[in-house]
Design a protein around this nucleic acid. Structure first.
Lengths: 187, 187
DNA sequence: CTAGATGCAAAAGTTTTGCAAAGCC
DNA sequence: GGCTTTGCAAAACTTTTGCATCTAG
């Protein structure tokens, strides 16, 4: 019996045009409020990030830069870092650390419902899921803590995906681990 | 009405001698299994880590080294990193990233019950709490995911501690942020 | 004696910053 | 024109590694 993984992940990367333009509107509001100028690089980075193809949910800065450079080679690291910082500030991006040493970013914003993550400890596959119950849990704890005001949470489940269970040397979606290329520009 | 924070934190640092020796036993088993030699430095690091005073739950490598050097100045970074790696491997330490850029470590092991964290976004105070409900939640998701085997979870709640709420420029336990000293030895 | 451990310094990897040049408004 | 942004390189910071030396077993 095949296990339907795809129904669990929130159709990553399948963002409708409508959602994209909603997110872009949120971005332009932020731009105006902070008197940010509109530059080709920044717009490109934002566009690439918000559209994120299904393979590129949870991008690292490196990956994002690579995607951006595919469309415009003359973009520097610093610009990506600075732009992502703006996206975080605008609430359009959220950062996550899954323990692989890199900070990863995913699309947030009013359009996206909150979700949590399940990470395969063997193959590093990352799945998303929604669990409304946890909001209730959060409130329970908040109440017990009395004075605390809980703003957000991060829940990560770590375990083994179907392909890894029992298989000692089995392969896995993320297992064909081509050593990450040395970063695009290193000194 | 004062809020009883202390009852929520699992009495951090108040580990009984019995617990300590239980942990040390676990360590010595690991040592034997992996033919690790007993050296003064390593024993010291392990001791300092496992005893961790109430202020020193969730230590960073830097903090741990500082504590260790207070007792023996001739210990290097590398040794601390290598020893902590052993502790992780032995299941006596667990690593956490709370978004302040440093990896932090806390005591794990059979003695300690699982717990989760609440982090004040303003003052970086870290509290621990237990919430049995979440194990059930974990199972719910595992069931829904069908083929997944969930091994562990991390739940982090981010919010504002009592002292920070409503106070725009208010101070906070962790707010007297003396800029972190430049690391102990830098080139 | 020998395998493992240490300390140092260098290297590696990620993120930030200073600055001159270029671009937006 | 003035203020923001960019790209580059250098700096800052965390973690790992190579190696000569030392030490527990």
């Amino acid at each position: 019996m095949a296990i339907q993984v795809s129904t669990l992940a929130r159709h990553p990367g399948v963002r409708t045009e409508e959602q994209i333009s909603q997110l872009k509107h949120q971005w332009s509001v932020y731009q105006r409020e902070n008197s940010l100028k509109t530059t080709a690089q920044r717009e490109l980075i934002v566009d690439v990030f918000l559209r994120g193809s299904s393979a590129d949910t949870h991008v690292s800065i490196d990956e994002l830069l690579a995607l951006v450079r595919a469309r415009n080679a003359r973009v520097g690291y610093a610009t990506v870092y600075r732009t992502v910082k703006h996206l975080l500030d605008a609430g359009l991006a959220a950062s996550r650390q899954f323990g692989d040493g890199q900070t990863r970013y995913e699309v947030a914003g009013s359009e996206s419902r909150h979700h949590d993550h399940l990470i395969c400890q063997k193959c590093r596959l990352i799945l998303e899921f929604e669990e409304p119950e946890i909001e209730r849990l959060q409130d329970t704890v908040a109440t017990r803590l009395g004075g605390f005001k809980v703003m957000q949470h991060k829940l990560e489940l770590y375990g083994l995906c179907p392909k890894e269970q029992g298989v000692s040397g089995g392969q896995c979606p993320g297992d064909d681990a081509q050593k990450p290329e040395p970063r695009v520009a290193r000194r």
